[in-house]
Amino acid sequence: MTMRIFLLLGTLIVIVLLPQFLAPFHIRVVQLFFFTAALALAWNVMGGLAGYWSFGHTVFIGMGAFAAAHFVAKLGLPAGPLQMIAGIVFGALFCGIVAAIIAYPILRLRGIYFAIAMLGIGQVAAELANNVGWFQGDVGLFLETALPDGVEPERFFYYVFAGLFLFTWMVSLVVMRSRFGYGLLAIREDEDTAKMLGVPTEQIKAFGFTISAVLVGMLGATYAYSLGYFTASSVFRIDFSLNMIIYCLIGGIGTLAGPVVGAALMLLLTQIILGQLLELHLLATGLVVILIVLTLPNGVMGLVGGEAFRRRFSMRAGGKAR
């Protein structure tokens, strides 16, 4: 226990001090790492624990961003950090409400059908945001800067995303240790048996989906603030959805450390090592994905986790189509 506390404190100190030693570009890379790792953790609540693979989680990034921007603009809140917090909270809540509403119909689908339905919902939302004039998704939306005086933007957002990452981590930890988290695992292993044994699968799935959506919505709204100006195509991005899945798979799906390790490895590869070879980006990503599936079917965490780990977590999702 004391070991863990020291480890946690050490991590916190490293996170706080790190920007002192990094160039602005690398601060941005670490910021991107916090953002994507938190996204992967949020996806993992539903995809990893319950085995419901969403292929359209970017819908909550986009909705969080649009909800936050319209909310602060309509209320005319004064610019500053408080306005940003209000926007982020509203974006997260909005995503949670939408998720709770669509949870019941959409979670009746399983496996690949759920995945594709989420992809479809993501596409519909993106097209509507882009084409319905009121949303202004095609011309784009501005968010007033939230920077306090005298703070550099990359440092400010570094700490914001670090905080959100730790928050997402804590939520994931609490979920995984709770009775509710075991309910999600039971759904992944065998939903029908779990239901027969008295696990309230409908409520657990809906709750897990909503938590995941709130976290992603919060991150999406913050991402919009870090951009300052965004259009529908910069927040509704299929590659966000896919990256969440790929990071979890590479690190080890259904674990707490897996999504984080996966995000770190892929960012290291794509941003640092292949940063110069932009036109080979897709090729490298594709190769890594194939190699991981063939060599480490349980992700990097499967390598260090041993047999007990392998029995508990493996690369699987709800297979049947209801």
């Binding site: 693979w53 690949i112 896919l242 790929i246 798979l249 897709l282 090729l283 990503t285 594709g286 190769l287 890594v288 994905v289 194939i290 599936v293 063939l294 079917p297 690369m315 699987r316 999702a317 297979g319």
Partner: peptide, 14 residues
Amino acid sequence: LVASLLVTFGVALI
């Protein structure tokens, strides 16, 4: 079987 989804996705990117 789900892994086939990832492999075909990887090949598509390449």
